[in-house]
Design a protein around this nucleic acid. Structure first.
Lengths: 142, 142
DNA sequence: TTTATTTACTTGCATTTTACAAGTAAATGC
DNA sequence: GCATTTACTTGTAAAATGCAAGTAAATAAA
């Protein structure tokens, strides 16, 4: 994995996709943001089955981009805890919109079908709530 | 380019990223959605410089996914017009959220800096407006 | 205290995707 | 009738991803 910080343009969409525009990054953020996962092992077990080297690689990229932080578990020397930064938590609205689009146009699992029927207000409220929770965790620990 | 319809899971985020989770698809949609582009040549000239074979490949994928349509220009046999479907127009809120995140955390070009300062209401209104315009075009032609 | 297991990776290699340069073929413009 | 436009295709190199196996330190179990 080389350090290649080449930027395609200065458009916000392009700059963002330079970082998160791949098939895995947002799934990692999804699992951290609302599936309660926070270790390498947890993330490795995500239902989509990410390859171990790809996960390792992505975690380094996301950490360098300051989307996640890596810290040692208290009382343990062999466990690390990955957590979203504020920048990472702010990716949540993107994920929510993607999830909404998916639930509208793709054959999603039963639990997610309902999302397509949510009103914009409901979705916004849900998004706000998740972000608030993660943000609270973030400020409480330091 | 092979037909590989393998799906990683039935999560809406994952299913969506199976289609649009790459560095180019959403930039193509961006250019179609609000830069007024509609031909292969136009898209090829996008500021990020997409490779010609990648563009050709992505257009096929997006057409198969029913995100865009391809039609012949009236009065011309050598020009094609690419346009967003409703499913494609519905990607706009995702792009808008990505643009917002980018304008907040990346070094975007001067014209986009202001986006980071927009209130949620303003962004929602803008998004709604762009979608309304595209949707109007879509219904007017048929 | 030795042994097994957990945790977080790395390494090597095959496959796929993307990048870059060049070429093609039909339609149009001059 | 010849150059140009338009929309690609082809070939090849480089990068990203997928898969299987291996490693090394820390912890738990016997």
């Amino acid at each position: 994995m080389e350090d290649k910080k080449k930027v395609r343009s200065n458009c916000g969409v392009s700059l963002s996709l330079d970082i998160i525009g791949d098939k895995w990054s947002l799934l990692i953020v999804r699992d951290l943001a609302f599936l309660g996962k926070d270790t390498y092992g947890d993330l490795l077990k995500m239902e989509e089955g990410i390859a171990t080297n790809v996960l390792a690689d992505r975690l380094v990229v996301l950490e360098k981009a300051e989307i996640i932080t890596k810290e040692i578990f208290v009382g343990s020397k062999s466990k690390f805890k990955y957590r979203l930064t504020e920048k990472g938590i702010d990716l949540y609205p993107i994920i929510m919109e993607i999830m909404f689009w998916g639930s509208k146009y793709c054959e999603v699992k039963p639990e997610q079908i309902g999302i397509a029927k949510m009103t914009k207000q409901q979705r916004d409220a849900f998004t706000k709530d998740v972000m608030k929770k993660r943000h609270k965790e973030l400020t409480e620990r330091s």
